[in-house]
Simulated assay, not measured.
Amino acid sequence: MSTLIRPPPLNPSQSAIENLLELTQLSDIDPDLFTNTRPLWHPPGARGIYGGAAIAQTLSAAQRTVPKDFTVHSMHCYFVLAGNSEIPIIYHVERVRSGKSFATRTVQARQRGKVIFTTTISFVRQNAGGEKLVEHSAEMPTDIPGPIEGMDDLDYGGASTGPFQSQRIEILNNDSPHPHTKKCRQWIKARGRISPAGGHEAHLAALAYMSDSYFIGTIARTHKLWRYSAVRKSNTKSSIDEDVLKKLLAMDDEELKRVKFLDQADLERIRQYKNGETISKKKTQPEIGMMVSLDHTIYFHDPRNFRADEWMFTEMDTPWSGDGRGLVFQRMFSRDGKLIASCVQEGVVRLRQPGESKL
């Protein structure tokens, strides 16, 4: 069973992402215990549930334990074990500190008694900084193609039933031989309209959920690594982005050329698959063998003054990768150019090794 309690009907007054992230408080056991109200998504080929769900639901649980005039300003997360979408998650909030200006909460996500995810979250009281402030902010890049309504990416984030929409833009400096000089960019927003009843907390949880979209994958894209496994006829576990590859194989050449997140090497390999040709390792780029998030940090800026259901621009770059790991930075802007969040993620990034047949 994927939930502890049978899920109630979807609330039509809430957006898809609000329904998805809904929590049930287990107050009869402990007022600081929560569980997922609805089943969580397991991306095809991933080791566990979509990481953004754990990030968002731990934030939602912590938000329910602080005074209304306190708002999250940072959270630091670690992915400990792969979450199983078939098992309910129990979220335990520990009230570490409740001060006059700041409050600290830790949240552990557990399945069958084992910690799968842990985070420490800091909240600040509104207007605690005083009347006079030290202020500055990075500016949103200019000359960016705007989002196109009704046109989404092929994968889960843009699926018609998904809780958010996304549109990737061409990689900046994609022809550079130096991955650290490239920037991966996208527009993203929650699908539908977040309800007034959800308050600023619902927008923050939605942003946290979406912040994990394509994040560690920045390293694969900047290195132009093959990210899609061959479509298999057996019942073995699928691999990275297999569902996306199925859709790409169904497209003709003109349609493929319009897919912004494919480079020339990707296009050539897809044509080889479609023509039934043997893939030559000498002619194609190395393949990703494993890509798993290890930790995730979000710094929220002016967290009560943005809407997660309006288009947000994100820009990701990677300063370093090595030793089977990689680091990625992300900035998230509102459409009018205000910096609303800064994120950092480290993850396992390993190439498929010689002789390996599957992940």
Rank of each mutant, 00 (worst) to 15 (best):
P7T: 04
N11R: 09
Q14C: 10
Q14G: 00
E22F: 08
S27T: 08
I29S: 04
N36I: 09
N36L: 01
N36V: 00
W41C: 13
Y50P: 07
I55R: 00
Q57S: 04
S60F: 09
P67E: 04
F70C: 00
T71C: 14
C77A: 05
F79H: 00
V80D: 01
A82C: 06
V96H: 05
R97V: 04
S98G: 09
S98L: 12
K100W: 09
S101T: 07
Q108W: 01
F117G: 09
F117T: 05
T118V: 07
R125I: 01
G129W: 05
G130H: 02
L133K: 09
H136V: 04
S137M: 15
E139P: 00
M140Q: 14
M140S: 08
P141S: 04
T142D: 08
P145T: 10
P147H: 03
D152W: 10
Y156M: 10
G158M: 00
S160W: 09
S160V: 13
G162D: 02
Q167K: 04
I169W: 01
N173A: 07
D175H: 09
H178G: 02
P179F: 04
H180P: 13
R185H: 07
I188W: 02
I194M: 05
A197N: 10
E201I: 08
H203E: 08
Y214W: 12
T218K: 09
T218C: 15
I219S: 06
S229M: 14
N235P: 01
T236L: 13
K237S: 08
E255R: 05
V259S: 05
Q264R: 05
Q264S: 15
A265V: 10
A265Y: 11
R269N: 02
R271D: 15
R271P: 12
Q272K: 14
G276V: 12
I279K: 02
K281L: 12
T284F: 04
P286I: 00
P286L: 06
P286C: 09
M290K: 07
T297P: 04
F300N: 03
F300A: 03
H301V: 14
R304M: 15
R304S: 09
F306V: 02
A308E: 01
F313A: 06
E315G: 02
T318D: 09
S321W: 00
G326R: 01
Q330G: 13
M332G: 07
F333Y: 15
G337T: 11
G337L: 00
K338F: 11
I340L: 13
S342G: 08
V344L: 15
V344T: 13
E346W: 01
G347Q: 03
L351D: 03
G355C: 07
L359R: 12
